[in-house]
Design a protein around this nucleic acid. Structure first.
Lengths: 218, 218
DNA sequence: CGAGAAACCTGACAGCGTTAGTTTTAGGAG
DNA sequence: CTCCTAAAACTAACGCTGTCAGGTTTCTCG
C-alpha cells in the first residue's frame, strides 16, 4: 500500500521522533529502522525526506540550537555573554545525548554563522578588539561544550572505601554522585563567573592604559 | 597456521595500531577488521587480547592521559592548575580524533582518580575550600575538553571569513588550517588566563574578608 | 484522461562488533 | 621423551547497521 492518501512522514515529524529516541536510548540507540518503526513506516521511507542519517542529526542539532539566545548583547557585553552561555548550556543539558554528535560534523550551518556574527558584533560594539572578541566567543563555547560533555561529577564511583584508602583528598567526592547535576550546574556557573570577572578586569585595565598610555611601573 | 611460534599480538601493539588508525582515519575509521588487517591478523584474534572494542578504546584513551601532568601543584595552585590544563590540552590536541570518545566514558579508571585526587589535594592545600576546589577542577576540565573538541572547525568560523577577505589569494586549506589551529590555541590560553585571573581575585578577596570580616563598604 | 512525479513498499548489499568452534603450537608434568 | 592442557591464532557465521534499487500505488497537473 505505497503512496498513502495523506503523507505519513514529514521532516519535522521525523526530527521529533528521532530526538525522542535519542533522549530515551542515547545516540547509539537511534537506528534508522527503529526510527522508522516508531513512525509506523519502513526504514528506506525516511530517505525520501532525509538523504542521510547525518543530515537528519544535523537538523535535529540545529533545532536544539534554535533555543540559544544571542539577543542580550543590547544590554551590554556582560549580559549578552552570560545570557548566551546560559541558554546555550541549557539547550545542551536538555538533550545531553546529542552532544557527542556535535563533536563531529562541520556544522557550520547558516544559523550557526548568524549567531557567531551576533556575538562577535555584540562584543566589538562594546569595545572589545576584534581579535579578542573572537577569542572570547571561542572561550565561552569551550566552557559550554566542555560542561555539556564533561559531566565531571559522573566520573566518580560510589564506593567510599576506594577513596578512604587510596585517594585521601577525595573522601567527600563520593557524595558528588548524588547531586551530580547540581554540581555540574554550579561548576559551570562558577567557571562562567570567574571567566567574565577576568574579562571585566582586563577590559578595565585596557581602558585605563589607553587613557594614560605607556607608563609602566608607576 | 594458528598459534604461531612467537605471539603476533600484544595489548601495547594493538593499542599503538589502533591509535594510528584513529589519528589517520578518524574514530569512525577504526574497525576491528581494519585494525586486524593492519596487524596482519584476523579480526577475532583481537578479542583474545581485548574483550571489546570499547575496552580497547578505553585503554588507548588512558595511555594518552598518561602524559597529563599534575605534579606542579607543589609550586602553587596557580602553577599546578596551569600546568595541568596545558598538558591536558596538549595531550588531547595531539590526538583530536579520540576526543569524541571521551565524551562517553566516565573515565573512572584508577589513573584518572589518582589525577583527580592530586588536583583536589593541591587546591585545598593552597587554601581553597573543598567545594570550590571541586568546581575549579570541573571548570578547568570543561575548558580543556571544550577546547579539544575543536571549536574552530565546529563553530566560530567568522574569523575564517575575515581571513579569506583579507587574503583572497590564499584560499589554501593548509594555511587556513594553520590559522585555525593558532586561533584555537590562543583562545584556549586566553580563556585559561581569564579564568585563573578571576580565581586569583576571588581568593585574594576571600582572604581579605577573613582578616577583616563583615565589613562591607569601607 | 493520461503522464509523471510523489511517497511509500520489499529485498538486498556491504560492513560492523562479536561469538562459536576448530586448529596448531608452546610449555610444563610424569 | 611423551602427553596434556592452555594459548593464540584461524574460518564461519549471526544479527545489526546505513543505504541503494526497483516495484507499486496514488496524487497532481496539463
Amino acid at each position: 500500500m505505497p503512496r498513502p492518501t495523506t503523507p505519513l512522514l514529514s521532516q519535522a515529524g521525523i526530527r521529533a521522533a528521532a530526538l525522542e529516541i535519542i533522549d530515551r536510548d542515547g545516540l547509539d540507540g537511534l537506528s534508522m529502522r527503529k526510527l522508522a518503526t516508531a513512525l509506523g513506516v519502513s526504514a528506506p521511507a525516511l530517505y525520501f525526506h532525509y538523504p542521510t542519517k547525518e543530515q537528519l542529526l544535523d537538523d535535529v542539532a540545529g533545532e536544539i540550537m534554535e533555543k540559544v539566545d544571542v539577543s542580550a548583547f543590547a544590554s551590554g557585553w556582560r549580559e549578552g555573554l552570560l545570557s548566551w552561555a546560559r541558554s546555550y548550556r541549557a539547550a545542551l543539558a536538555e538533550h545531553p545525548n546529542i552532544v557527542p554528535f556535535l563533536a563531529r560534523g562541520p556544522g557550520q550551518r547558516d544559523a550557526s554563522l548568524r549567531r557567531a556574527d551576533a556575538i562577535h558584533g555584540g562584543l566589538v560594539g562594546a569595545g572589545w578588539p576584534a581579535r579578542e572578541a573572537t577569542m572570547i566567543g571561542a572561550s565561552t563555547k569551550y566552557l559550554v561544550v566542555g560542561a555539556a560533555m564533561g559531566s565531571f561529577s559522573r566520573g566518580f564511583v560510589d564506593d567510599v572505601q576506594v577513596y578512604l584508602n587510596r585517594y585521601p583528598a577525595l573522601v567527600d567526592a563520593h557524595r558528588l554522585r548524588e547531586h551530580a547535576d547540581a554540581v555540574d550546574r554550579d561548576s559551570f556557573e562558577f567557571a562562567l563567573t570567574m571567566f567574565v570577572d577576568g574579562l571585566a578586569a582586563r577590559l578595565a585595565q585596557a581602558r585605563q592604559a589607553s587613557v594614560a598610555p605607556s607608563r609602566d611601573r608607576t
